[in-house]
Design a protein around this nucleic acid. Structure first.
Ligand SMILES: [Mn+2]
Ligand SMILES: [Mn+2]
Ligand SMILES: [Zn+2]
Ligand SMILES: [Zn+2]
Lengths: 141, 141
DNA sequence: ATAATAAACGCAAATGATTCGCAATATGTC
DNA sequence: GACATATTGCGAATCATTTGCGTTTATTAT
């Protein structure tokens, strides 16, 4: 079923007419299997033995975000981190500040508040970004 | 009172032992007065007549974030945007996707949920990033 | 007010993450 | 298996941000 999530991404990629290439397959696998927010460089190092170029990793990440199969972590230092994600259900993540491990928060806690926010601010609301930060059980002091 | 918010930042800067210089004063004023999420380059252009270097603008923004007087917008394209903020009270922002205008959401909607998130994910929660995106009244279609 | 001192500035060069051009290659199709 | 074309790897280019350094400025003490 871990396998399954990668395979869902493979399928969606192909359904949209993109080729399922080795670099894409490997990047998707790593993102899903590690369950961590990873940088392009980290992915490149994890895949060092495969001879995949850093450019292809960047291109793959861009495509995955476009397809909703990955998203950029909001807390960005110098390097952007990416999180594997399944498209469709709107939800959020908690990311370990030490090891980058990601857990899903399977539903959105905020939709009930969008009306309140609209009334208070006079803005229409199109979307929001929410990410929790903390420590996973392995990294907790 | 708009003036006031800038002055609060001026005061905090000095209270922490930093010099209140012309570049710092001007960057703080712009961020507060425009009420928009601005890039370093935009600030540089807004302050073109003052002969302030881009380097100083970057250095000032870094300091303001460090002091909690500004924060980086979470939806970052290529250039990072910065939002003036008063330290102390935890709250969030809604940012206009067209003009960058910012409104405060004066309280945090999420603290009640942190327990739930902790229980569900097994993570301890240290913080979260939340930002709404939409259109201000002037930019609404 | 003036001088002293360190912080902060402006400038130009450096850095470094990300992007791009292009020839070579791999993938999906017939 | 051969074909057409999307995608790759490589190296160069880009460009936002950072840094080194000599000069200027804000603050504190005469
Ligand atoms: Mn997810
Ligand atoms: Mn604010
Ligand atoms: Zn962890
Ligand atoms: Zn607007």
């Amino acid at each position: 079923m871990i396998r399954n999530m990668s395979h869902n991404s493979f399928a969606l990629l192909q359904a949209r007419g993109y080729k399922l290439t080795e670099p894409r397959r490997r990047v998707i696998e790593q993102l899903h299997d590690r369950r961590r927010a990873l940088t392009a460089l980290e992915l490149h190092q994890l895949l060092a033995s495969e001879g995949i170029s850093l450019a292809s990793i960047y291109r793959t990440l861009e495509l995955l975000v476009e397809l909703g199969l990955a998203e950029a972590a909001t807390r960005s230092g110098d390097e952007q981190r990416y999180i594997a994600c399944s498209p469709g259900q709107h939800h959020h993540h908690i990311v370990c500040s030490r090891c980058g491990r990601v857990a899903d928060i399977t539903e959105c806690l905020l939709e009930p508040f969008e009306d309140v926010v609209r009334e208070r601010t006079g803005f229409t609301i199109e979307s929001h970004t929410l990410e929790f930060h903390g420590y996973c059980s392995a990294c907790r002091q």
